[in-house]
Nucleic acid binder design. Structure first.
Lengths: 345, 345
DNA sequence: CTGAAAGCGCTTACAG
DNA sequence: CTGAAAGCGCTTACAG
């Protein structure tokens, strides 16, 4: 049940079997055909651990990771989470000779610059995020030219060619949020979508989540009042004009925050003396979880960023060693978190 | 960075290092101490793939799985799911020489009988379910005597000694159900808990889920009307007497089904012409998912039985090969499913 | 009590 | 175009 048996059955040496398996040149057409037939018939599958045993010391599998710089001014770093998942995967695969180098960027310029640095070295794979359309396309081009697989995490955007994404379906996540909020608020209440405006690069997910949220109400044939509120990065959202009037009404209110800042809402509601309001947001940062514990946020949706990182490394390893591309493109399930199933922190 | 380097540093042969690593006899105290010190200093970790390379053909790791017989009369077999997860793990570990044999039981007698058969063979590990207290204790005793690790799936019950469980915390799941249902029904509505009575063995989870459900309402200081309805296995629940009166009222109603039969409720509600009722149940079987699609069930809680099986095999492998017992005892998160994040089927 | 050798399944560098 | 040998890190059976 190995290369040795194939060799014996085909009346060749194991070296020749190896050449056929790796499609290397220097094998007579006849021989190749015979060997391939036997491989087919016996249903041979390569033993990956064995094949990596020698290579683990001689020919490492090197992956580059290019993600946003961790923001150390806040107590919660979203980008530490994929990193943790990546490190877990690397630890599991270290005896297979897998290594990872981390690169970070601040804006589109440094993203492109780091990208070029990465392709100047010879990595076997790249994990990054598609925050800048033009630059992501360029990176994908470079990768294609060098035949290096790329996995994009976190967000999906339309690129010029096919690409691999490991991310939550944001439209679906928005629909789930609609379902959850509607259950609490009902069809008579007022809905508000708090959306972030991002100066640096696309925040495609925000719009997709909003679209999904609105699509949910269409799907249940309910015409409810939904009002969008935009606010800039690093600035708290504010309520103005008729919005405040609506919030003061007795009718229940639902507030859907399309980013990780739902924790800013409870204080805002309090300051306007708003009652009977329900809040749904994204991401399990400490402040959000705290609000969940205090019943100030009702639901949080988790994108499992740590798992995304973990899955990217595992998927790339399986692709590089087993030609199995099935795990390079994944939809992360929409995980619903309430106070009672929230992780301890 | 391997046994060879340790050997050189300690001035012994690799055979001796191997003896020390495996705590085999026949090593001089002095030598052992020296080798151990170097292992410590260098932070040596065994390469599991390498160590399994030879053994994969010579000394298989054999695991026995003892789970309920699949019920082929119904279209959905709960016990096929852990099996699928187990098979996935075995496939991933097949090149490490991991093999699994499946055994099934119908009742406590056949459970005990299969258990004894299993311990007559020499398996390296056992995965089973703790449905029968007395018999599970016996199995655990046998296992302890032969120093064979056991993992119990699905349910946790109090056994005489320490044991490994991979299962959802049912009390927590009940609390989550309380939270979800309360969000839809509010504090003015009536609540009903539909509980299964199981003739064969304990259905410990049912009671724990009910307790958790009630605990949730205590935790939010709400005294609501909660009425339990018992029904036997394979028989649909029925509403009687004052229950029907309550169900006919205008007030919203919440129905918590503590097993996988929530799909029986919508028809029952319809036949009594009950409106304004909300349903939460367990498990993603086809009928439940169908009801979810039709908005007849509002929430389902998933126990991830496939993942439980997968995790048991992986955990046992890590225990047997790396002495790492950390994954033999796992709490499976309470996964909340609505129409919009339900798996396609 | 200790070492040297063979072998697990695969890859590589060399010889022919 | 093909084969034989060495080696990856570890384990085992044998020799001393």
């Amino acid at each position: 049940m190995g290369i040795k048996r194939i060799a014996k059955l085909a009346n060749v040496s194991i070296g020749t079997v190896d050449r056929v398996l790796h499609k290397r040149s220097g094998v007579a057409k006849e021989t190749e055909k015979r060997v391939l037939k036997i491989i087919e018939e016996t249903g041979y599958v390569k033993n990956t651990s064995a094949s990596r045993l020698k290579l683990a010391s001689v020919k490492k599998i090197r992956m580059a990771v290019l993600i946003p710089r961790e923001n150390n001014t806040q107590q919660w770093n979203y980008w530490r989470l994929p990193k943790e998942g990546i490190l877990k995967a690397v630890e599991e695969l270290s005896e297979m000779g897998v290594e990872v180098d981390f690169y970070s960027f601040l804006n589109s310029t440094s993203f492109a610059a780091r990208g070029h640095e990465i392709f100047a070295e010879d990595y076997d794979a790249l994990v990054t995020v598609p925050f800048f359309k033009k630059e992501s396309n360029e990176l994908q081009q470079l990768a294609k030219a060098k035949d290096i697989p790329v996995v994009f995490l976190d967000t999906e955007i339309a690129l010029d060619g096919p690409a691999n994404f490991i991310r939550q379906n944001s439209h679906n996540a928005g629909r789930v949020a609609g379902r959850l909020l509607h259950g609490l608020v009902g069809s008579e209440g007022d809905y508000f979508i708090v959306n972030i405006i991002n100066d640096k690069g696309v925040h495609a997910s925000g719009q997709q989540r909003e679209d999904g949220f609105r699509a949910f109400f269409k799907s249940i044939n309910q015409k409810v009042s939904i009002q969008s509120i935009q606010h800039a990065v690093d600035v708290a959202p504010v309520f103005v004009g008729e919005m405040i009037e609506k919030l003061k009404k007795d009718a229940p209110k639902g507030i859907f925050v399309t980013n990780s800042r739902a924790h800013l809402i409870p204080r805002l509601l309090m300051s306007h003396d708003v009652r009977n309001a329900f809040v749904v947001g994204f991401d399990l940062n400490e402040r959000n979880l705290m609000c969940l514990q205090r019943d100030e946020i009702d639901f949080l949706i988790n994108q499992k960023p740590d798992y995304q990182g973990y899955a990217a490394i595992k998927g790339l390893f399986n692709f590089l060693t087993k030609e199995d591309a099935s795990a390079l493109n994944l939809q992360i399930p929409v995980e619903i978190i309430v106070k009672e199933n929230a992780p301890q922190f």
